[in-house]
Each structure stands twice: as structure tokens, then as C-alpha cells.
């Protein structure tokens, strides 16, 4: 938690009361590999900041297959924002791919921080913009780049991810088959 607060402090002034408020609505947790933090179809109340390890959010289609939306490594946030924002049941599942440490926040309480401490607005806007940028890039990459190019970019974005993940996680993030992913890797190793 200290780390997160010092990160926030680099952008905005954090009053002692705000710091106390953050502590009061959060819990640092160690989670085990395979643990499910949010489950598709259930109510979502929490959002998570990752301090170590790797988490994944995915949806399950009507045929029972998984599609990965996001990986979250150190310093990333992860939750089901569709469910939180629209007050709907989860469309995503969030699972821990490795033993991880996270800070769990009550999402509704965290939202109140902007009312209590308006300086957090600018911090939050910055985070959101960064998030929108990364989503726009992901959509554009998906539309215009070849699978090998997408894989290269993915490795740049998540340099150490392959030690945490299974092939099918990565294939389902890139929207390609596992066979294609294996082919791309073989081609890459020849270069």
C-alpha cells in the first residue's frame, strides 16, 4: 500500500486524511495461483491493484471457450469495469495466474474519494486516459496488424509474461489459435 501511495504522491498532493481513507477501504492480500477474484455472472464490488504476480481477466463465450481481455502485472489495476460502471453482473472472470499480492479496494467506496478529496480527480483522469490509450492501441493493433506483429508488441508490453502464462492465455489474448502462436514462435526463433 505504501508503494501505491508514494506512486500517487508523485502526481498529486495526498493529505493524511486521504491516505487514511485509502487504508480504510482496502486490504492487502496474498492470493494463490488459480484463485478466482471475480466470477462471470456474479456481483462485482471490488477492484484490485497488483503489487506482485500476474492476474488475468477473461470472458467465457456461449460455447464455453475463454477469451482473454487483459493481463495485470505489478502496478496494474484489474477488475470488471463494465459491471462496476453499469451496475451489472460480471461479464468477466478475474483469476490469479501466479501466487500474487494485491490490494483489494471496495470499488464504490474508492469512487467516493473524488468527492471527499477532489485532488484525486486529476490523478484518476490521468489513469483513465492512460487506460483509454492502451485500449485504443489494442483495438487498432487488432484491426491492422498481422498476428506476428501483434505478438511482438505484446512481448514489448509484457516482457516477462511468458514465465507466468500458458500458451492458450496468450493465444486467446491475441485472438489467434495456439497452433498459430506456436508457428509464430518458431518463425521468430529462426530470425
Amino acid at each position: 500500500m505504501k508503494e501505491l501511495i508514494s506512486k500517487i504522491k508523485k502526481r498529486i498532493h495526498v493529505q493524511a486524511e486521504a491516505e487514511a481513507f485509502l487504508y480504510s477501504i482496502s486490504k492487502e492480500k496474498k492470493v494463490t495461483k488459480g484463485e478466482i477474484l471475480i466470477r462471470q455472472g456474479q456481483v462485482v464490488k471490488k477492484t484490485f491493484f497488483v503489487t506482485a504476480g500476474c492476474l488475468r481477466s477473461y470472458c467465457i463465450d456461449k460455447n464455453g471457450k475463454e477469451h482473454t481481455l487483459q493481463f495485470a502485472i505489478k502496478d496494474w489495476w484489474i477488475s470488471d469495469y463494465i459491471a462496476i460502471h453499469n451496475n451489472e453482473l460480471a461479464t468477466l472472470t478475474v483469476e490469479c495466474l501466479t501466487p500474487s499480492t494485491i490490494i483489494e479496494f471496495n470499488a464504490r467506496e474508492l469512487d467516493k474519494i473524488h468527492t471527499y478529496f477532489p485532488e484525486f480527480e486529476s490523478y484518476q483522469r490521468h489513469n483513465l486516459e492512460r487506460h483509454v490509450v492502451s485500449l485504443h492501441k489494442r483495438i487498432l493493433n487488432q484491426l491492422q496488424l498481422s498476428a506476428p506483429e501483434r505478438y511482438d508488441l505484446f512481448l514489448q508490453q509484457y516482457p516477462d509474461i511468458e514465465q507466468y502464462t500458458r500458451n492458450y492465455h496468450i493465444a486467446s489474448y491475441l485472438g489467434i489459435t495456439q497452433e498459430s502462436l506456436s508457428r509464430i514462435r518458431v518463425e521468430k526463433s529462426k530470425k
Binding site: Y58, N63, Y168, Q178
Partner: peptide, 11 residues
């Protein structure tokens, strides 16, 4: 748990 990369029919 079923394998995540295949459909219900395949599982």
C-alpha cells in the same frame, strides 16, 4: 474444471 481453451462440446 473443464479445459479453458475448448468448447463444452469438445470437453
Amino acid at each position: 474444471k473443464k479445459p479453458g481453451n475448448i468448447s463444452f462440446e469438445e470437453a
